[in-house]
Design a protein around this nucleic acid. Structure first.
Lengths: 187, 187
DNA sequence: ATTCACTATGTCATTTCTGACATAGAGGGG
DNA sequence: CCCCTCTATGTCAGAAATGACATAGTGAAT
């Protein structure tokens, strides 16, 4: 009965709720900024767009494109907006939570500490880079202070999550490096 | 050339590096404690065990089981241990990072703030519960102070990650609730 | 007595996801 | 002049993952 629209479907709807877009543009936004918390390739988006189309959650207008075919500018329908709104407040089912670095950490006791330190230093550098990126974006967003009811609120809220996440990660990496260093030179 | 063992394969090897186990037992450990950072169903583990078996990374001994068939107690081979050790220090490829709550947050500006507050309060409660769980486990693990080179080190390191992660999440949920509350009653 | 939970193996259909491929015009750099 | 990148659409094979099903013995509680 319930048209089981996949999570990716809602991600697409969330994009279209902000601006009408071609499939290509949606794919671009799935890399940035959504890519930080949900990823999808174009072929996957294409498949899902057909599904959304069939369920009348999106529609499109054709416009002359650069390639051999016309481009299709998708937009969300009233029905789609309703479905999206419903989905947003539905409690998320406990998600898988897959993290290769932590899995490696679980087996880290088998490996060479010096090499591990290098690996965690690389990870730390990446997290610090992203943290700096987020922090500069944060001061910009805080100035404008986007109100609830505007897309800017969504940007601010997800940015905030990314910010504290990167902080937690960097902190953990530093702790790991410290622990591993101690195992190398025991005072 | 490179025997492309999946990440799940290494998760299984990481379990067997600690103790010989039946497939059923591996599945149990994939729920707890590995389930926090990598999940797999039994059918998936079964498929992967066959692959690992074919690649000589694991072997098994039969023993009388409760059911109609003998049970198979798997153990890691020298080759498997080598592959696992190599994999551990290999830098992890940037993982997908899928988070439904954050995706909902991205579209939260469309929904009702009061309902959202409830959703985040539920999430906060869950994170606080897990945090309390991890914190009591932490004091127990810190006392024993497991040395590098023992499985206990892996337990401690992953627990530490879970600890700071839950703290970050709880913090973010509290921030969200605060923001959403403000949009309800503007001073 | 019967039901339930746990141990233990395995299959299978379906869905989801990835990565490669195919097409094609516009615009810029070497 | 050629090559690369970006825009833009789409297909397809194969891998990965899920969830349901099938079988079957033990032991504990109702």
């Amino acid at each position: 009965m319930t048209a089981t629209t996949s999570t990716l479907g809602f991600a697409i709807l969330a994009v279209l709720a902000r601006a009408d877009s071609t499939g290509y543009e949606i794919a671009g936004r799935m890399r940035h900024p959504i890519g930080r918390f949900w990823t999808a390739s174009y072929s996957q988006i294409h498949t899902d767009l057909q599904r959304l189309l069939a369920a009348d959650l999106v529609e499109y207008a054709t416009a002359p494109g650069p390639g051999p075919q016309d481009k299709k500018v998708y937009s969300i329908t009233a029905k789609g907006l309703g479905a999206l709104r419903d989905w947003v407040t539905q409690p998320p089912r406990p998600q898988p939570e897959r993290d290769e670095l932590v899995l490696k950490t679980y087996a880290a006791w088998l490996a060479d500490p010096a090499t591990l330190i290098e690996m965690f230093r690389t990870a730390l550098r990446q997290h610090e880079e992203r943290l700096a990126e987020y922090e500069s974006a944060w001061v910009a967003v805080e100035e404008r202070a986007p109100a609830f009811g505007t897309p800017g609120f969504g940007n601010m809220a997800t940015l905030r999550c990314g910010l504290t996440y990167e902080r937690h990660r960097a902190e953990w990496c530093r702790w790991m490096i410290d622990q591993l260093s101690r195992s190398l030179e025991p005072s």
